[in-house]
Design a protein around this nucleic acid. Structure first.
Length: 227
DNA sequence: AATGAAATCAACCGCTTTATA
DNA sequence: TTATAAAGCGGTTGATTTCAT
């Protein structure tokens, strides 16, 4: 593990290299290029030897995270579509805070993205006193599992996904969830889509692919497990 | 235009799970 | 079977950006 002592950072964060020899903080374009090139040749995994083989001053954990969240060629980027938002809500209702599992159902999205999206949304809606779920989605988990913080939640409100507005509050919610189970079987959105490969416009990867011949990936990477 | 608040995003930390010798 | 390393995961933080006043 690349755990580092607290409070030991240099003032120049970008250039800071800790006692352990590993650098922290934002990745530079050059570091991204080194890591992406390495992965294109050797594939993913064995993150701890990346540093040894490339000279990157990053621990394996940091390399894995950077690849997973930013350099993977199949990442979507950009705002979540209405459909994706809806799916995140549905998945959260059924899984709770299982971000990695949720990411498996949303091709091109990372667990970190989904987590950030959800936390932002949750915070906003709590502040506005709006229900976390639209009225047609009931959480399968009990309140404390779905929402660790104590919270007054209105339910059975008509929720406009686009405008995020509360239309008509009525009753409180309970743990019953038969409606949701029905939705999973009825709703085509809930069936796993096929993995797609997208290279985001203006991404580092796009540029590398066009600039660098070794960036033509020998191994397609799927983030969605085969069913 | 300046400023503070809110939102967003990237990255780290620490714990858990899985793989391997 | 056990110990260790590696990988995975969720929570959290802090920097930056955007928005409102």
């Amino acid at each position: 593990m690349c755990t580092l002592p607290h409070g030991g950072e240099n003032s120049d964060k970008d250039q800071a290299v800790e006692e352990s020899g590993f650098k922290k903080g934002p990745w530079t374009r050059e570091e991204d290029e080194v890591l992406a090139s390495y992965v294109s040749i050797h594939g993913v995994g064995n993150w701890n030897i990346v540093q040894k083989n490339t000279g990157l001053a990053r621990c394996g954990k940091s390399c894995r995270l950077r690849w997973t969240n930013h350099l993977r060629p199949d990442l979507k980027r950009g705002a979540f579509s209405d459909e994706e938002q809806r799916k995140v809500i549905e998945l959260h209702a059924s899984l709770g805070s299982k971000w990695a599992k949720m990411a498996q159902e949303l091709p091109g999205r990372t667990d970190n993205e989904i987590k950030n999206f959800w936390n932002t949304r949750l915070k906003k809606r709590r502040r506005l006193g709006l229900p976390v779920y639209p009225d047609d989605i009931k959480p399968m988990l009990n309140d404390s599992e779905a929402f660790p913080l104590p919270e007054l939640i209105f339910d059975d409100c008509n929720f406009d996904l686009e405008r995020e507005t509360l239309c008509m509050p009525s009753t409180s919610f309970g743990p019953e969830n038969s409606i949701f189970e029905q939705q999973i079987s009825d709703n085509p959105i809930m069936h796993h889509p096929k993995p797609i490969s997208i290279v985001p416009e203006n991404s580092i990867f796009e540029q590398q692919i066009s600039d660098n011949p070794i960036m033509h990936h020998p191994k397609p990477i799927s983030i969605v497990p085969e069913n």
